[in-house]
Structures are given as structure tokens and as C-alpha cells.
Design a protein around this nucleic acid. Structure first.
Lengths: 113, 113
DNA sequence: GGGCTATATTGATGTTTGTCAATACAGGAG
DNA sequence: CTCCTGTATTGACAAACATCAATATAGCCC
């Protein structure tokens, strides 16, 4: 028989046999996590909060350091919180941000590779 | 003396003491890596190539699986290669993609959490 | 209550990004 | 060389995004 397995597969497509694809929900969830860190400012913010004195930082200091407007910093922090990378706690007038579990895992994996 | 250290710090800003910031080049480099995976299609492509039969996959099969136009798939693959997550090898008419070292590290970290 | 400060939200704007159609390039077959 | 097939690039366009100014909200202090 002339057409063995490889040839059959090549008829279907060119040749590679691929695993089952991720569900689109799964792919989107993972991509969303990466997207939260796909901005230099947010990488910086995660770094700053992670290295902060009592493991937490408030918006005003972060704003001073990253040199962007306060609304912009609040916006980025919101994205990091929504992604589960930071947590937010309001104490009095200030809002304190800490690195969440998922954020720790990112830092541990040194996903800057 | 009435103004001890904490009070002085609070005059400077509100209170947190932050680490030295990342250089903007460093932050941008890390963000660029994350950005490459900040799209569901590219997460899917990395997954598919990683699980492919002989550890490699060609564009045509990937195109069939992700159900996007061939130019779009080539575009995403280029981004993954540029980010150092995949490698590309041309053999005859086909282009074969494999997971690069940085890509392995991402997968090992379970796609970031 | 009124004023003040830290933070969040809204609106607007320029930039980036994902996608496809059309086209170009590369390489094997005849 | 000429077709044909797989892949890459270009051009165009709509959607998403980062940023800031203006405004709103929250919580102290008087």
C-alpha cells in the first residue's frame, strides 16, 4: 500500500499533528492576565509595590515615582487589581496596595524571563 | 524634637518607602515580553506549538485550528518569534515553528499562574 | 455643617493593535 | 522557464488603549 500514515496526514493538511486547542475562554483568561502586565508602567508599579517598605504602597508615592498623572496611576492600579495581581485596601484617606498571590507567582517566576 | 522620621517622610509624601524604580528600558523589555502573550490567539498558538507532534508545527495547520486568515496567523507568529518565545525554520515550502527557551519558561510557569 | 486632601471616575484625544483583502515572495514540480 | 502552493508583507480600517484635564467621590478635621 502506497499511502501510509504520514501521507494520509499530509492530505489532511501539511503535516503537524496538533493537540486539542484551548477553549477560547481559557485562552482569553490567560491572555487577560498577561495583558495586565503588557504595559511598562504596570510592570513598574508591580515592582514598586512588591519592594515597598511594609509590603504596601499608597497611590501618592507611586504617582511621584512613576511621574504620571494621578488619574493615570489609579487607572493602571485598577487594572492590576482587576487582574488579581494586586489588592487594594482603603485606610482613611489613603488607598494601600499590596501584591496579591497571583502577583507573587509572577514575580517568583521572574516572568521578565 | 517633635518631628521624628515618620513625620518627615510624611512631609515628603504620604508614607510608603519605595524601592528604586526599574529603568524604563528594563520595564519596557519586560512589558514587551508580556505583550507578546497578551492576546488569546497568541496564547493559543504557543499552546498548540508546544503540544505539537514532533515539537514543531507549520503555519497551515495552525491556521486551520485557530480559524483566522493565514496572514493574521503569520502576523501573530512573527510577534511570538520576535519576542523570543518561538523559533522559525524554513524547510522547503513550509515554515516550522518550535517553542524557544523563553517560551518553555513561560509554559513551565503554567502560563503565568 | 464646610473645607481640605487623597483617590476614583468621566470625557476627549492621539496611538497602538487585530484583522482581512490584496499582493509579493519563496521554493518545489513539471 | 512557467505554474502552483505555502508563507510573508502591505494597506486599510475598526476596536482597544494610554494619557491627561476636569470632575466626582470618600474620608478626615475644624
Amino acid at each position: 500500500m502506497k499511502t501510509e500514515l504520514l501521507t494520509v496526514l499530509e492530505n489532511v493538511s501539511c503535516c503537524s499533528d496538533l493537540p486539542t486547542a484551548l477553549s477560547s475562554a481559557d485562552a482569553e483568561a490567560k491572555a487577560a492576565r498577561f495583558k495586565a502586565l503588557a504595559d511598562p508602567t504596570r510592570v513598574q508599579l508591580l515592582h514598586l509595590v512588591a519592594g515597598a517598605g511594609r509590603d504596601e504602597a499608597c497611590v501618592c508615592d507611586l504617582t511621584d515615582t512613576v511621574k504620571l498623572s494621578q488619574p493615570t496611576v489609579s487607572h493602571h492600579l485598577r487594572i492590576l487589581v482587576d487582574a488579581g495581581l494586586l489588592t487594594r485596601e482603603r485606610r482613611g484617606t489613603w488607598a494601600w496596595y499590596r501584591v496579591a498571590d497571583a502577583g507573587q507567582r509572577v514575580l517568583k517566576a521572574d516572568l521578565g524571563f
